[in-house]
């Protein structure tokens, strides 16, 4: 129910709406809840509304954290604190 999917913003249409690309499917969604997205950004879409812009840098950091081996644990727990 609370599942939402990443979609790429392709073009802004009527005020507050945008066409997004969800894995190849183009769909118009409301951007009323997200202020800072621009074309090319990825947003999380749920029931026809973009809920949040995906932060690309944070995504890279998370992927890098997955790859860290246990030996780096001490360092690892210091680094990825909470988001500001």
């Amino acid at each position: 129910m609370c599942l939402a999917i990443p979609a790429r913003v392709e073009e802004f249409t009527t005020p507050g709406n945008a066409i997004v690309n969800i894995g190849g499917v183009r769909k118009e969604v409301s951007m009323a809840l997200v202020d800072d997205a621009v074309v090319g950004d990825y947003v999380i879409v749920h029931v026809g509304y973009a809920l949040q812009r995906i932060d690309e840098e944070e995504a890279e950091l998370t992927l890098a954290a997955f790859a860290e081996m246990g030996e780096l644990d001490n360092l690892h727990t210091e680094l990825p604190g909470e988001a500001p």
Binding site: L33, V34, D35, I44, L51, Q52, I54, D55, E56, E58, A59, L61, T62, P80, G81, E82, A83, P84
Partner: peptide
């Protein structure tokens, strides 16, 4: 503690605009 693994989409404050609506 509260830790955030999902930093690519979740912030400490959340979506304030959505909360206000």
């Amino acid at each position: 503690e509260v830790e955030n693994e999902y930093t690519r989409a979740v912030t400490r404050e959340g979506n304030i605009k959505a909360q206000a609506q």
